[in-house]
């Protein structure tokens, strides 16, 4: 029988390493994806995602089964990203310096247009302050509901909704200003 997340948490707390390793296997892609979309740099994302799991290990006793494990771990991931950003000095980079990876499929032209649009969106998202960026990433890229984001961030649903609305408008402004003014400096996460 497949163990539930809570079974694995209990097992890990009793010193069963295999149970914790199973939790890491289950959630590593989710955590890495959330973190990568917030910080963009793969190396930083890897370090932060590992730190998230270490924090999870240290705080297993604080997990309550009334929340989904995914919600709890995303909360730890977002807090770790915020801490990371506080520690790290913000760097300015030009869009032209950013690298994009092209998938093998699709024609070069369509891929270029598609990748450029997506890259433009991600650049705009990364230029947002965390207050807007985190709810936008969780809602539009990770597919969390307002309710889930509210429990992840510990903020009321109405505030989350306002931040997402405001964030969308800021995104639109950033994309439009990019189109009008060409390359612009972005704050890299």
């Amino acid at each position: 029988m497949v163990k539930t997340d809570y079974d694995l948490v209990q097992g890990a707390m009793d010193g069963n390493e295999a149970d914790f390793e199973e939790l890491v296997k289950r959630y590593k892609n989710l955590v890495y994806s959330v973190v990568l979309r917030m910080v963009t740099d793969a190396e930083d994302a890897n370090d932060i995602a590992q730190e998230v799991f270490i924090k999870v290990y240290r705080n297993l006793s604080k997990y309550s089964p009334e929340y989904k494990f995914s919600t709890w771990i995303i909360r730890i991931a977002t807090n770790t990203v915020i801490d990371f950003r506080r520690k790290k000095k913000q760097e300015f980079v030009s869009i032209d310096e950013m690298e994009t990876e092209l998938p093998d499929s699709a024609t070069p032209e369509s891929t270029y247009v598609n990748t450029e649009a997506k890259s433009e969106l991600m650049d705009a998202i990364n230029s947002l302050p965390d207050m807007y960026k985190i709810p936008i990433v969780l809602f539009h890229l990770e597919g969390l509901s307002y309710q889930e984001i509210s429990s992840v961030l510990g903020v009321s649903m109405s505030k989350i909704k306002n931040r997402i609305y405001r964030g969308r408008k800021l995104l639109k402004e950033a994309i439009e200003s990019k189109k009008e003014g060409g390359s612009f400096g972005l704050q890299k996460g």
């Binding site: 390493e17 914790f20 390793e21 890491v24 296997k25 590593k28 892609n29 955590v31 890495y32 994806s33 990568l36 979309r37 793969a42 890897n46 995602a49 590992q50 799991f53 270490i54 598609n114 997506k118 969106l121 991600m122 539009h140 890229l141 990770e142 597919g143």
Partner: peptide, 18 residues
């Protein structure tokens, strides 16, 4: 489109954490 992209943690992630 971006959300459809499957992002996987790097190779050896669990080992590094453990």
């Amino acid at each position: 489109e971006v959300s459809k992209e499957v992002i996987r943690a790097p190779e050896g992630f669990e080992k590094a954490v453990m």
